[in-house]
Design a protein around this nucleic acid. Structure first.
Lengths: 255, 255
DNA sequence: TGAATAGTGTCTATAAGACAATATCCC
DNA sequence: GGGATATTGTCTTATAGACACTATTCA
């Protein structure tokens, strides 16, 4: 609302920086990192991969895997590298989320963090063996509904709250908000399932993201009539009830 | 799809950087800037404020107003400062868009740019007198439809194409994509109008963003039944036809 | 009076929710 | 056969598009 909150000194400094573009290193630059929220669904809930910090600051707290952006490395490249080296994952859905730049968000020095989120099938995440110390797949407890947003809580298998480092509760909150906003029209659910899946599995993934039950009939109709899936002719095996048909993701052709 | 695109050297460098967190300045840091796309609507089309570059690189091309992020300045604060000093605007809608971090996007040095977009009523933008040299309100020509995305073209009043600097055509393309994606459920249109407006003006703003005509009856019903506007009891003046009632924005109370 | 746009009422098509009925598997 | 879930079909309701009609202003 206020149009002049910053003292003129900032303007002068910024103008000097602008004019010195050919010697940008003469001015202090912030550090730039990427933090990657790797999300999956099981037990009807969203989960995120967290790493326990072994050093100060925030020693002992749980953090999203992250790393500095190399001077010759793109942001997407840095996020892929973090995902590969710290979660042992490659070739999965990865998308930029938001950039966090509050001045005091890291107590050491000025750190601007570009947040990413990745989606992966639960079995791949439990099979991966990252060598980054203590990790956990924390259940994400969302204390708000719909589009409102805000920070979330991370819980272990026993339901105990895991303290989160820095502003990572905010980042995870924005991940959930983004996923809920996109799930209705973007193929996010498929990223959380194996290549062949039943419509019930897809619905359960949607329900875990939205944290509410969906109408089964409407869900089936919507997915099928929009041409988002193709039947494989196969059915699921070893279930103690009528096996459902297996589908695979088929990007909509119409348009 | 490939899980190992980066040579191991990157990992080593990143790991060294990570371990040296208490002396982060020992490693080269990228420059961080904000670029702000100031959008408005008139003549039935979206327009953006552009500044002509007076220096190399990209001398003579048109660019979004931007500036370096100060070491003690938040990203939002930097965007507000750029908007205030380079467009003479304050107190308007401003939201982070996306962060652009391709290695070669700026030929001088490594520059990571956090893109923002602002929405403002056309009369405020033409009244503002920024002192940043040659500026233009360019019509944004979008060569794609719907959600597909991609770069756009900037045109002057005569329809001539204005060459854009750096990756700013991509940034503006993402602005349009974001606005089209949000207009159906977020109150973006009101930001482009004066405090009191007619439903036709609101519809024209939506049509300029979406670049397609909307059904008048459905539009009116949707806006009114969702409780997005409140009638003021006043009507527009000096129009050569039946004057319409003036409304004001009323955030939805339900839910 | 005519031109232009505002605003209302009604019908239809589409999509979602509710619910019933049948089908298919394992035990 | 019984239990559980899959799958299909029908009815109802909400919303968007289409269209006809009336209202109000200025030239």
């Amino acid at each position: 609302m206020s149009s002049q909150p910053t003292p003129p000194a900032d303007d002068v400094a910024a103008e000097r920086a602008f004019l010195a573009t050919y010697d940008a290193a003469a001015f202090p630059h912030p550090s730039v990192t990427v933090d990657v929220a790797t999300m999956t669904t099981f037990d009807g809930a969203l989960h995120a991969l967290l790493v326990r910090r072994s050093d100060h600051p925030a020693k002992g707290r749980w953090a999203l895997p992250g790393g500095f952006v190399g001077i010759e490395e793109s942001l997407d490249g840095a996020a892929e590298r973090v995902l590969r080296t710290k979660a042992g994952l490659g070739g999965i859905f990865l998308e930029q989320l938001y950039t966090f730049g509050a001045v005091e968000r890291d107590p050491r020095t000025r750190v601007i963090s570009v947040g990413y989120y990745a989606l992966v099938e639960a079995s791949r995440l439990t099979a991966a063996k990252p060598d980054v110390g203590e990790t956990v797949l924390a259940r994400i407890d969302v204390p708000w509904t719909g589009e409102s947003g805000g920070p979330v809580r991370a819980l272990d298998e026993a339901g105990r709250e895991l303290p989160l480092a820095f502003d990572h509760a905010e980042i995870l909150g924005l991940v959930v908000q983004r996923m809920r906003g996109k799930i209705d029209y973007a193929p996010l659910g498929f990223q959380l399932l194996p290549e062949r899946f039943t419509l019930r599995q897809l619905q359960q993934a949607h329900e875990a993201i939205l944290d509410r039950s969906l109408n089964k009939d409407s869900f089936r109709r919507s997915i099928i009539t929009r041409g988002l899936v193709a039947a494989t002719g196969e059915t699921e095996k070893d279930v103690p009830y009528r096996p459902a048909e297996l589908y695979r993701y088929a990007q909509a052709e119409n348009g």
